[in-house]
Design a protein around this nucleic acid. Structure first.
Lengths: 211, 211
DNA sequence: CCCTTCCTGACACTTGGTGTCAATATCGCG
DNA sequence: CGCGATATTGACACCAAGTGTCAGGAAGGG
């Protein structure tokens, strides 16, 4: 059961090294802050040279925010799984359910939350985080555009981007609110609450933009 | 009329140098790209040393995106100028009117638009742009919270952040759509269109978050 | 004219990140 | 087991963005 593995050995050792690096780095960041920790220190603490570190991560930033790349595909997948005739706002809400699992898992959360604190308190990382989220949104905009009108995506129609952006704004708002709360309420209800304040007006686009 | 000036001489020469640097840098960026242009080159082209450049701008990035800092106060000001009983969505829409002036001004636009293209095509700058916009939003969230319920801002209420974030998402969407269009329609109508697709449900917050 | 103050350039240094290359470890195969 | 191909690694040199320091020079006020 160990041959013809879908994940070759090379790739597994690689991931192991990345996990190791991440764990070591997290300790250092917690102890002395992100900016005050050099790549040399991280590499040395993991028993390798700086050059080798950069073979596992394209940048110091990516060690922290690289994992967010996985979100993009998972979200697109989750959105595609929703019925085509479902209201888009509801589809987006259900799509966000996959982020709930992330937060709900008790022993994963501590690790993830510590990294989150680092991201939010380091402007440089927060900026890159926002950019990644923007890229995720771009993936989804095309899909939402198709649901709004069955023809192809008209790039001069601002509505799909507005809707997706608004949905993400709700998720961000819910995240912040939940972090600021005592966590007695489930994150999901914050998300419901945030998304309930905005309704999509399906009869819009009357302010003529004659294409 | 030149003494006891509200803007002292030192500050004026400083701004002049910044403008000069920006103009020179813009040419270089347009010619060879942002990443391929070093600070040394910009400084040399403006007749100064690298060290002096960093006395005028805290970083290479700030030369491009530094001007967005002005937006924060201008927007907060514009929002404060709206009547308190006006629906918040309308207030936010009117607040964005100040961005229209920026885009409308014919001879300012060419310069501003070139810089905008650089920002959007350089991930690093785009990330910092998004972060700045996020900071602007944080300024406004408190004000919107006060309008929603007259007591002080409850940080575990996601609605103000959701609304402000959604409004900015609409502006971003309108910007992108307008840039992708042939610009025959006014930018304002794109903004109207984007913001009209989302309506605020004032009777929300029924999904009890008992504070 | 001098004295103070600010501005500037030169220099050295740190850190993130990359190219190169030789040494070494690993893998597949006979 | 041994051998050649391939991948991984570390050492070194290098570049670019910033930052600290310091001495010299320009501007301004008396």
């Amino acid at each position: 059961m160990s041959d013809t593995n879908p994940v070759p050995i090379r790739e597994r050792t690689r991931r192991l090294a990345q996990t190791e690096l991440t764990a070591v780095a997290q300790d250092l960041f917690a102890a002395q802050g992100y900016d005050n920790t050099t790549v040399d220190q991280i590499a040395a603490a993991a028993g390798m040279s700086k050059r080798t570190f950069f073979r596992y991560f394209p940048s110091k930033d990516d060690l922290v925010i690289g994992k967010y790349d996985l979100f993009a595909d998972r979200m697109a997948e989750a959105l595609d799984a929703r019925p085509k005739n479902e209201p888009v706002w509801e589809s987006l809400r259900r799509m966000f359910d996959i982020t709930l699992d992330y937060v709900q898992d008790e022993h994963q959360r501590a690790r993830s939350e510590a990294m989150d604190a680092i991201v939010r308190s380091t402007p440089q990382l927060y900026a890159r985080y926002l950019e990644k989220m923007q890229r995720v949104q771009e993936l989804l905009i095309g899909r939402i555009a198709v649901r709004l009108n069955d023809d192809e995506h008209d790039p001069s129609d601002p509505r799909p981007a507005a809707i997706v952006g608004a949905a993400f704004a709700c998720m961000q708002a819910a995240r912040h609110a939940w972090f600021a709360s005592d966590r007695s309420e489930a994150f999901g209800s914050y998300l419901d609450d945030a998304m309930a304040t905005l309704k999509i007006d399906r009869a819009s686009r009357m302010t003529a933009i004659a294409t």
